[in-house]
Amino acid sequence: MNFFRLLGDLSHLASIFILLHKIQTTRSCRGISFKTQALYVAVFVTRYLDLFFRYVSLYNSVMKLFFIASSCYILYLMKYKYRPTHDPSIDTFRIEYLLGPCFVLSLIFNYKFSFSEILWSFSIFLEAVAILPQLFMLQRTGEAETITTHYLAALGVYRALYIPNWIYRYFTEGLVDPIAVTAGIVQTGLYLDFFYVYFTKVLQGQKFELPA
């Protein structure tokens, strides 16, 4: 564990608490893509299957359980409790265009051609693009509640911090995880446009609005 990874994980935790806070205080999941949230459940369930056969640390296990449980809970809130506030007509990204290629990629790029390793690769690739339905929705509506942008920023910062973590691990442990690094760089890259607007507008006290 190093500083960057810990900070990244804390940022990930923060993003989930911000999202829960947004849903519960506004009593609405307006502006949140159900598809992205569903993809995160798929990501966590497929990646953290190793809870059953690999022990890393208490920290690791607790975080994994938290990410699975919280993502399922968010899905429940969106699907049942605050269902009327979710508008599927603007959440129209075709996720099969993500699931298919990620599955094919995981068959080609994996560390071992086994069920659990293929699922692990799949989850890494899927996580990299899981935010696309959300960003697509943002693009369509052209604006977002400030708290929603804080959620997205925390989520983006989490992945961005994994990059210095990998650099640090390369120099201190000689460790390189090409699949995670490649997917992680792509994932962080997807946030660049968003970050630009977030830093130049939202953090200056303005509303998140995309140019028409």
């Binding site: 990874r5 190793d50 975080m63 071992k112």
Partner: peptide
């Protein structure tokens, strides 16, 4: 060894 990867990250 990559085939024995530990996946210790989240």
């Amino acid at each position: 060894d990559a085939s024995d990867s530990k996946h210790d990250e989240l």
